[in-house]
């Protein structure tokens, strides 16, 4: 990608500031190049300069402007994403686990945990509401991408990331400043067990899990692979263990051995005890 012209840089900086209060500041040419290069290519434009020319010629708020904003700001995941699975965890799933498993370690698996916001959300729910359980809980975090998984290990998030979905009370209780970023405190990080893993390939060495989060993952696989993954997840669930999938996903026809249960707005699949 060619160098960014000063005028183009300034236009993008102003655009981001007026559209989403994102003050890019100076010297972020590399960020524009890495994030907007793909947007330009997708739009059939030669480079960033052509992208800016095209943006200027279109009314604000159009799809291309939206893509630029998303590319510069969006994260694929966020803390407390969708809310209700974590309410179900707090109000129903963990209390039920406690009533039948006093003193036993709790095993939770975030399959495709991406940059870690989901497992850290679970850790905060446990630390806040069930401190004794949190002390004996392990959260297995797996992802096929070693780079994003490293972020779970480090527990470091940008300001834009902690702005998304994380209540301020939780932020100041469980995170500390790390330069311009925020780092999860050791009490959360110590609960994480990150491992690189491809869900599409049969796995070994995963202990029986009490709770599995497999949200917004299955959509990326074909029907055959999806069925194989659900079967393997079911076999990995401990007796009585539960599976969360994404709100818009379905495993209809491949949920043999699992019973469907509704907790408020959350659907979970339970393996027979």
């Amino acid at each position: 990608m060619a160098d960014i012209k000063p005028d183009d840089y300034e236009w993008i900086r102003q655009f981001l500031y007026t559209q989403c209060a994102n003050d890019l500041g100076q010297g972020k040419e590399y960020l524009i190049s890495s994030r907007l290069g793909a947007v330009a290519r997708e739009a059939g434009l030669a480079d960033i300069s052509a992208l800016v020319t095209s943006l200027k010629a279109r009314p604000l708020g159009g799809p291309l402007h939206q893509k630029v904003m998303e590319a510069m700001t969006t994260n694929e995941t966020s803390f407390f994403r969708d809310g209700h699975p974590f309410a179900a965890l707090e109000k129903q799933i963990i209390p039920r686990f406690l009533s039948s498993n006093s003193g036993r370690p709790l095993r939770i698996w975030c399959a495709a945990s991406s940059t870690g916001q989901e497992p850290y959300t679970i850790a905060m729910v446990l630390r806040t509401n069930f401190p004794d359980v949190a002390n004996r809980a392990r959260i297995l975090c797996t992802d096929v991408n070693a780079t994003v998984l490293k972020r779970t290990t480090e527990g470091v998030y940008s300001q834009l990331e902690v702005n998304r979905g994380l209540p301020a009370q939780m932020l100041v209780r469980y995170f500390e400043r790390a330069g311009a970023n925020w780092r999860a405190k050791a009490e959360l990080r110590s609960m994480m067990d990150p491992r690189v893993m491809n869900l599409a390939v049969p796995w070994i060495g995963i202990q029986p899990q009490d709770i599995v989060f497999l949200r917004n993952v299955l959509i990326y696989f074909d029907a055959k692979t999806k069925r194989e993954i659900v079967t393997r997840i079911r076999n990995t669930l401990a007796p009585g263990g539960v599976l969360f999938i994404g709100g818009s996903e379905s495993i209809l026809g491949m949920d043999e051995g699992l019973s469907r249960e509704q907790f408020g707005m959350s659907t979970v699949y339970r393996r027979a005890a």
Partner: peptide, 22 residues
């Protein structure tokens, strides 16, 4: 600063810059 605002009665806290989604 965030702790101070919450202690004085702010309900929530959003840091600039922020996105539409945030």
């Amino acid at each position: 600063r965030i702790q101070q605002a919450l202690a004085l009665g702010a309900t929530e806290y959003l840091m600039k810059p922020f996105t539409r989604e945030a």
